[in-house]
Design a protein around this nucleic acid. Sequence first.
DNA 1: TTCAGGAGTGTTACCGTTCCCAATCCCGGC
DNA 2: GCCGGGATTGGGAACGGTAACACTCCTGAA
Lengths: 333, 333
Amino acid sequence: MRDVAKLAGVSHQTVSRVLNEHPNVRQETRARVLEAMESLDYRRNLAARTLVTRQSHTLGIIGFETTLFGPASMLYGIEDAARTAGYLVSIATFRNLERRPVLEAVDRLRQHAVDGIIAIAPKHAVTDALTQAPAGLSCVAVGGAGGADGVPTVRVDNAGGAQLATRHLLDLGHRTVHHVAGPGDWPEAQERIAGWRDTLTAAGAEVPPILPQSWNAETGYVQGQALARDPAVTAIFCANDRIALGVLRALHEAGRKVPEEVSVVGFDDMPDSGYFLPPLTTVRQDFAELGRLSLALLLEHMAGPESPAHVVVTPELVVRASTAAPPKRRGRR
Amino acid sequence: MRDVAKLAGVSHQTVSRVLNEHPNVRQETRARVLEAMESLDYRRNLAARTLVTRQSHTLGIIGFETTLFGPASMLYGIEDAARTAGYLVSIATFRNLERRPVLEAVDRLRQHAVDGIIAIAPKHAVTDALTQAPAGLSCVAVGGAGGADGVPTVRVDNAGGAQLATRHLLDLGHRTVHHVAGPGDWPEAQERIAGWRDTLTAAGAEVPPILPQSWNAETGYVQGQALARDPAVTAIFCANDRIALGVLRALHEAGRKVPEEVSVVGFDDMPDSGYFLPPLTTVRQDFAELGRLSLALLLEHMAGPESPAHVVVTPELVVRASTAAPPKRRGRR
DNA sequence: TTCAGGAGTGTTACCGTTCCCAATCCCGGC
DNA sequence: GCCGGGATTGGGAACGGTAACACTCCTGAA
């Protein structure tokens, strides 16, 4: 910077002003400085800037299982939006959903002086940990655990999505809808269960038992085998597309045709669920949008820490070929 | 830090020494300092440290389509390894595979003074851009484009993987193996094509034509429909699992049974390919390991920039239920 | 007894910015 | 022609660490 100043024949302070687009610099001077910067291939030292301004222009993301489609997409959305907002993102993942590892991740980011944190927070433990973050550090939670305490959140209306799916099946004429749930201690899974159950009871339909377990295809396969054995089962709502994949396989192996005999609905709309056998009807959530929104919320919160806002995104039903009317047509009741 | 020094009754320099685990500090003094740090909840300002040492203890990752399983997993592996090595990772993604955006991403990271860069580099343009990175900044390329110029690389033996798949099908008794390739301008796709073709010609089998297009399920579906129409087709090797998914669907819709009539092999071993219909035989690449290795290579290169090393990871065939002997048995030839 | 040398500690300079405040220039109004 | 005030510029002083070097002890060998 000193070199630039010397070459342009001004003080280092003026260079700084040009850098920060301070209004009170004469056009001519600014041009001279810019030219000098150009010819010296100068770039400012952000560490020095951070040291004095206490702003790193870096945002932190703490995430869990970022290898899965949902979290990875959110990450992508956040990074994209952050870039256009002039921020770099650093990422800290943790391996299990307890308070300690989360706090460690927050701490790691704090050490590096991030200006704010977005947590991909599927469980309450994460959101809770966030409330313990030091004051002055803005945090936003995105993903599962909704309606949290003092932390702004962005989330999907899981209950609404589950309702969409369940209603769709009911409207097709199914007497009731079975559900293969996600892990019982995940708010997202709970909300989907609630949305499904409420829709069923509101329609006066019987509520079959559930056995919440995991988010993967194996769960779907195992539970699907049991459901396939029961001829009364004509409609299955799965907590996500991976589970649906497993259910589809179980059904197929048991010789039960989809959608002629059994209808299946998923949740997420993963990239290739349109190519499942048959193409999966599912509830689509726009993860990238979720990421973008959470970034916007974070910036807002960093600018003026008002009372925490809560943004809810509405998912959308994508009807494909895995759902149809039940085999023996009955009246809509 | 001054406060800590005062409280411990030493100079700030001694505090610094304790922080950096300098050997020449008396036990007792060290204890006193540590205690002071504890009671003041002191944490060192990394920006200041970076300013003087010119080391940010941050690594940069530049990536493309990090929302897909492969890149996301590498990211994960890198972050994991970086954390244990005491680094934070920042990420910069770019939207298209040309030189400019890649260089911009490198620049962004450089501004933030990253100590090194790992590029998830599926195409040569990325690796090329890396060679233009300023001297003194260590870079490693991981992923597709192998055997590059001056940049250390970590990659999977795609040709070897393709050979594994093709051999497996040939050994089952198929006369030849058809291939649904990935996009023609991707080195990974090219290498898989080469491995497949070479294996075929080495075995004296006919080499069917290919039509390289894209990595997604749609490609598989479209090309699968054409292949399904040809009764001579009994074995299909797909450039990745997503393509295989599409092929499986096309085959099923055309009424051709897998694996009784047609065998299908994928590449990648995505999380749920074991639950495809039928469970997919595929070539497994360990993305997380790839990430870890690339980090190790980067650290090595940062320590002593010897001639760039090239690490090759061998993939592994996972045999599941989508492959079998061809319908009319013929001799092994 | 003297002295070399290492352990332990403190002093000072410096890393590259931005902030605060003062200085200078220039313009219009009285 | 003088003066107030905004525009423009410059001169230190931070920011919070680490590096380099100097200094004081203390120990063991000559």
